[in-house]
Design a protein around this nucleic acid. Structure first.
Lengths: 340, 340
DNA sequence: CTGAAAGCGCTTACAG
DNA sequence: CTGAAAGCGCTTACAG
């Protein structure tokens, strides 16, 4: 591939001038010279080497994104939004998929710092990811979930506990007295937050609510299996709070297989609120995370320059009322928006 | 951040030696010296700069992937599979999302060649993407859809026409005589292939089949809208062949809204066959693309070294029989991936 | 086994 | 307005 040297030679000038014209600065170039350079570059199909540029310039104009599972719609929508916001500021978004594997996440973290991305957006698969490669590499990061303030990185996230409580309360307000918490796998910080919010709603209810706890992987198929078992029992719950939309789809599927009608036999709520939640059968009542806003804000923080003191911002979730919980009153709809 | 120079100084040696120990070659290093280097590196949190490394080494060990829409499950699964295959060979997969925008695709293409990825996997949003940046940058590329052989790049893809014909034939074999082709937007090469396969099946049928042509964006919501209009009519088709699973989900949703039962009132086939197709209501009969195999093969070609003559390989699709077309015979059922 | 030096392809003060 | 030169942080023949 042609280099700046080749272009300079052909244009009868120096590499400095080639650089000046390709960067519109920092020095002026005589119009005639600029023409010659452009012409030579075109003839040689010159494509500046971004590696060399970044090395001497000290910036790669790229932002890394690490997500647990890129095939999950929520992260797909997130990547799309981030990419858009990054592109608007002239940054390239590099997406790394951990495939739900901590080891792969770690390897992406070091790959990104070694490649000197300017900053990174992280959604970790771990409770306490090792962020030191970032901090000692001085690369600013914002996580999109709560993070220990001692880690020295920023975060933007909704209040999961409050959101879980809101959704559970909604179920209770429908009169359901037997509710399942359908949580994620393992004992992660995330699943604890769902549990806390769920319990808060149950405990503060004047009525007695009977609860059961179910868990499954996030994958739809696995959730369906677990739901199939749990809902086949005669003492099945009247409603189920799901910690992700994916799991809710699995529950919906299981109900359908068992001949159970949603919401008449079983009510269901989801969590995340990607646009597909409007097209499930029935459409899903769910907690919507404000993905575009979170993405925009994350990129804003990251491109604002320097790593100032870490900030921890909270984003507003929204309980989106649809059909999976039963009919709701018009007034209830507006009441339930923007809680917390 | 610490550099190799810093490490060398602290270890009382040269940068060459630092390089030798971090790369295990190409020269040997005395055990004692290696220890000192490792120790110094650890103390300084040394992270080799991959930019500089790539610049002098002439390889970035990274593969670019460009997809039309990363939020689409099919591309999500593809990215996951590619990432896996790439990682196994010590390569980082960089994912670029075009967001269905030709301009963004172009910008990713140049971004990737400027950053000197070693090779790229492309799924274009265009019929005839401009591949010259790749060819003149000498970066090997494989597209995952048919491509003009004159372009000088490789491709791996299923035979869309044959697949479309297979699915349509299946619909006809169920006895449906009024079939809609639910195609993608615009007059792309892709939609023409679906049309050709569809027509081939219809034309070769001994029975007369009445057909109508519908089109929508790939997005589920848009497909649902179009289906809602088309299926509300009294002369609605008895079956609909969809060019993607996403559109099929939209059709399923529309049927549900209209009180139509699938497959009793309307039969539906999808295309792509991501794992979610097993969990729609009802589970979707669809054409499955062998994503893991295609991904593995693509990475294999790309990492085999050098850009030999472009190859054009065809992958095997599979008609996965489920419930959205009506009951099928046991013999056919052996193809059924999911049973309930 | 180890080091000084050139080179990868850019950018940018510094002189002219 | 333009060029020679140093520097970004590595790797790797080439000498010792």
């Amino acid at each position: 591939m042609a280099t700046g040297r080749d272009v300079a030679d052909r244009a009868g000038t120096s590499t400095a001038v080639v650089s000046y014209v390709f960067n519109n600065g920092p020095r002026n170039v005589a119009p005639a010279t600029r023409e010659r350079v452009l012409k030579a570059a075109a003839e040689l199909n010159y494509q500046p080497n971004a590696l060399a540029r970044a090395l001497s310039f000290g910036k790669t104009s790229s932002i890394g994104l690490i997500v647990p599972d890129i095939a999950n719609r929520f992260f797909g929508e997130l990547a799309r939004a981030l990419e858009e916001s990054a592109a608007q500021r002239g940054n390239l978004l590099l997406i790394g998929d951990s495939g739900l594997d901590p080891e792969r996440e770690r390897s992406h973290i070091s790959a990104f710092v070694e490649r000197r991305v300017d900053s990174v957006v992280l959604v970790s698969v771990m409770d306490e990811p090792d962020l030191t490669p970032f901090t000692r590499g001085e690369v600013p990061v914002v996580t999109l979930h709560p993070v220990d303030p001692g880690q020295g990185v920023s975060s933007i996230s909704i209040d999961y506990v409050a959101a879980a409580e809101t959704a559970t309360r909604h179920l209770i307000s429908h009169g359901y007295r037997s509710i399942a918490l359908f949580n994620g796998p393992g004992d992660s910080a995330g699943s604890r937050q769902h549990l806390d919010g769920f319990n808060a709603a149950v405990d503060s209810s004047p009525e007695t609510i009977s609860t059961i706890h179910l868990r499954s992987q996030i994958a739809r198929g696995h959730a369906a299996q677990v739901a199939l078992d749990a809902l086949a029992r005669t003492d099945r719950p009247r409603a189920v709070y799901c910690s992700t939309d994916e799991q809710a789809y699995g529950v919906l599927f299981a109900c359908n297989r068992l001949g159970l009608t949603v919401p008449d036999d079983v009510a269901v709520t989801g969590f995340d609120g990607t646009d597909h939640s409007a097209y499930s059968m029935p459409p899903l009542t769910t907690i919507r995370q404000p993905v575009p806003e979170m993405a925009e804000r994350a990129i804003e923080l990251l491109t604002a320059g320097g790593l100032g003191a870490p900030v921890h911002e909270s984003a507003q979730f929204e309980l989106v009322l649809r059909e999976s919980c039963g009919p709701h009153e018009p007034s209830a709809a507006s009441l339930n928006r923007h809680s917390s």
